[in-house]
């Protein structure tokens, strides 16, 4: 998995390329936690595969930033990966995070 990081309009953008799984989730988690910006955007266009460890990490990091009053945002999600995330309830959890601090 390759991670490209740049700044855009005051927020951090993390572009992912490749496959995110059990073996490399920690690497990406560290990159998210290293960012000081209020909004961190994760661009998933280049993501070819994500396993449950990857999904769990993205949600835990969304919660982590939310608790700090910050935002982790996911953009350009490939169709098949969007379907996988929808099935698990990924977007329902993000919605709940916005409306309910217990999510």
């Amino acid at each position: 998995m390759e991670i490209r990081i740049y700044q855009k309009e005051g927020m951090a953008v993390l572009e992912l390329e490749g496959e995110m799984d059990f073996s490399n989730v920690e690497q990406f988690q560290q990159e998210i936690q290293r960012r000081p910006e209020e909004v961190v955007e994760v661009d998933l266009q280049g993501l070819r595969f994500i396993d449950s460890s990857g999904v769990g990490m993205l949600l835990s990091q969304a919660r982590y930033l939310h608790r700090q009053g910050r935002t982790l945002r996911f953009v350009r999600i490939p169709g098949l990966i969007r379907e996988d995330l929808e099935l698990i309830g990924f977007f329902r959890v993000l919605e709940a995070l916005e409306t309910n601090s217990h999510a």
Partner: peptide, 27 residues
């Protein structure tokens, strides 16, 4: 949060429509 089961009946296949958020993600 799981893939819904497939039902085969008289040579026709359909996927169940039930959905839900995976365990442990919401209270």
């Amino acid at each position: 949060g799981h893939h819904p089961p497939l039902l085969l009946s008289h040579g026709q296949v359909k996927a169940a429509e039930c959905r839900g958020v995976a365990l442990g993600l919401l209270e």
